[in-house]
Design a protein around this nucleic acid. Sequence first.
DNA 1: CATGAATGAGTATTCATTCAT
DNA 2: AATGAATGAATACTCATTCAT
Lengths: 220, 220, 220, 220
Amino acid sequence: MNMVRNMDQETPTTARSGLENYRRRVSATKRRSILDAAREEFQGNGFTHAAMAEIARKADVSTATLYKHFNSKEELFAAVVAEAYSSLELNADAIGDAATVEEALATLADNYLKVQFDQGLNDLMRAVISEVSGLPEVGREFYEMSIKRRHDELSGLFDRLIQRGMLKPHDTSMSAHEVAGMLKESLIWPALFDPSFKLPDSKDKIISSAVATFVARYGA
Amino acid sequence: MNMVRNMDQETPTTARSGLENYRRRVSATKRRSILDAAREEFQGNGFTHAAMAEIARKADVSTATLYKHFNSKEELFAAVVAEAYSSLELNADAIGDAATVEEALATLADNYLKVQFDQGLNDLMRAVISEVSGLPEVGREFYEMSIKRRHDELSGLFDRLIQRGMLKPHDTSMSAHEVAGMLKESLIWPALFDPSFKLPDSKDKIISSAVATFVARYGA
Amino acid sequence: MNMVRNMDQETPTTARSGLENYRRRVSATKRRSILDAAREEFQGNGFTHAAMAEIARKADVSTATLYKHFNSKEELFAAVVAEAYSSLELNADAIGDAATVEEALATLADNYLKVQFDQGLNDLMRAVISEVSGLPEVGREFYEMSIKRRHDELSGLFDRLIQRGMLKPHDTSMSAHEVAGMLKESLIWPALFDPSFKLPDSKDKIISSAVATFVARYGA
Amino acid sequence: MNMVRNMDQETPTTARSGLENYRRRVSATKRRSILDAAREEFQGNGFTHAAMAEIARKADVSTATLYKHFNSKEELFAAVVAEAYSSLELNADAIGDAATVEEALATLADNYLKVQFDQGLNDLMRAVISEVSGLPEVGREFYEMSIKRRHDELSGLFDRLIQRGMLKPHDTSMSAHEVAGMLKESLIWPALFDPSFKLPDSKDKIISSAVATFVARYGA
DNA sequence: CATGAATGAGTATTCATTCAT
DNA sequence: AATGAATGAATACTCATTCAT
């Protein structure tokens, strides 16, 4: 049945005219390179200082082509931001079977920080913050889709841990904010003000301490 | 008394002419109105979208006069930012005699949030973050002088509370980060992405919970 | 009957294949829809603001097909304009048997105005005038083929009326200009400056007066 | 008393600071050269094809200066058009004492045509017509201020001629339209479609005939 | 010393036309 | 023969900064 479904999807593709297929592929490729170039520009220069012409140059397309794919600079930026957070992999489930609360939280924190720093999300976050007055929608959506989403994931994890008797019953939305805040204060906040900020060696110690503080209050 | 005040101003360069004095006063007044106008513009529109011409207009001076006082937009911005954090009043001492740790922390948090929201520091913070790529110095200095400075004040308070036996001995720099982070996550972070964000009604509950979590781990 | 129609089309190049025939018909259909779409666009937006892409969209063809039929925007515009005036039906003859000069002229004027307003010729005329600097040929040709052609028709009518003794012998080219000008001043000229201009209620009065003035000088 | 009044006006001017005066002069000069350059461009290329950069170049100013004087291309165009028709000198009065109606009308027509052709008003008129869809206000205002204004002047003259018994009492608005239309049909209308159209040698004959037709109906 | 007019470098966006399939 | 994605050249407008008076 799986095969059949696959065939259902693939048959029309192969049956499609070569021209259509070719165009689809070329178009997708260009769109991809535009998004990559745009992300690089926006992360490096922020929204305002990123130039459409430079994005086009980096993507190796004309500005007109760029505008065929995205109707405006705002729309392109929104697409870049949306793609950034839609690619975030939630992995609270994956670590749900950790032996201890401490282990689970530390792993989750590690994953989160890895993604945040490796994918340049701090740079993108600064770019979004820059345009909060001009593009309030993008700001609000970014907050909802990345920050709030991870918060919900975290409080969901806590709810499950309560059910398993690994945590005291409590307001998990509050506690999720608290543990996230403890980590961000030392590890994300500085990155907002210093583009060269890297994860410090003390990272693990900071995580351990935050987890310990969390457990001191909410541990079973 | 009048003399005393005059002497305060004139002593440095003795026997200044009345004209010189007048000019000095006029100049200081203009500088003041420029800084006020600039702060208003930068908080309202961010660095990039603030216009020097508009600042000059609001300050009721010509653009040339504006440039006599500040050599560039960057320099003016830096001056506004510096003034903003240098006017922050630290008040950890004032509440040092609180009866309980909880009371002391809650009062401190209240003061901090009041200043942050009433003086539009969130707006200014967004402006600084916006220009971190272009003006890294301003970003770093802002972090040092406002965020780090408040952090040092807080850990200093904790040190004193430890000495009085009201807190367990511990790494107070770490704990200061943690309690600050817990508050910011709910009460400052959203303001970064939504300029219309106001302190929520749940503010006191959030403060209480953060303090309780702090005390659960670090309380004596 | 079907054969007859086919023969009408096929006779010129005998023994054409069915495929060729089909293509010819399709091509003619497309050309037709392109011209219709183009006229709509040009009348609505003028030459410069009409967009080739929009014309293609309205005609339901690709831009490439559009360019197969017409080598440039200018050529397409010229074709639209040429078609517009070639479809003008002269009808001076038809009213040649009117009882009085007054009646003949009033009928002719009525017909002329009806066509001009109903077929959107005022809009097209504005479009032509707009491009007179860029496309002088189109302007001159439009003038020759529509304005001058109607003028010739009119002076021809006057010549016949002179022969019948219904008008004094005179320079009919001059008088044709005069009567046309009298009507246009009130009924066409305003439309050049106001696209929403409609024929006023006083239209008949204006026609009568112009005719009366004409007759006062040139009547037998 | 005349002298005193002059002094009243000049004193403040001379008392004005040299700087202010200098700037006023320079600014007026630049504005003048911008308007001249713009008129040349608009007459030559129409509104859409006139380029702000080219106008700036011809006026020997930067585009920014150009925008200091006129907020937009539309506004600049409107200013050019307004200046063109506000400089039209009505001179029906001046010829009010002509011996005969014929003489008065012929003189008036001559003046009108002279201005229209010498000042390039036909070119400007084409430019206005081009933008009637985009800038309806400019179109309507142009019609009101130039065409309608001259029409009112003409019918006013006719009213006075009726009072003097030189014309039959009649609807002078109608007759003004008629005589204007007779002239325009031969002498202005062709210029709308041919930028190189010049006043023909037959000009005087055309004027005479139009006047004669007018007098045939409305003469006393 | 103050002025504000002038600048030049910069940017987002559009559109007639072409070209690989 | 038909497609529509891609192009490049063009253009209105902005703004930090300077300069002649």
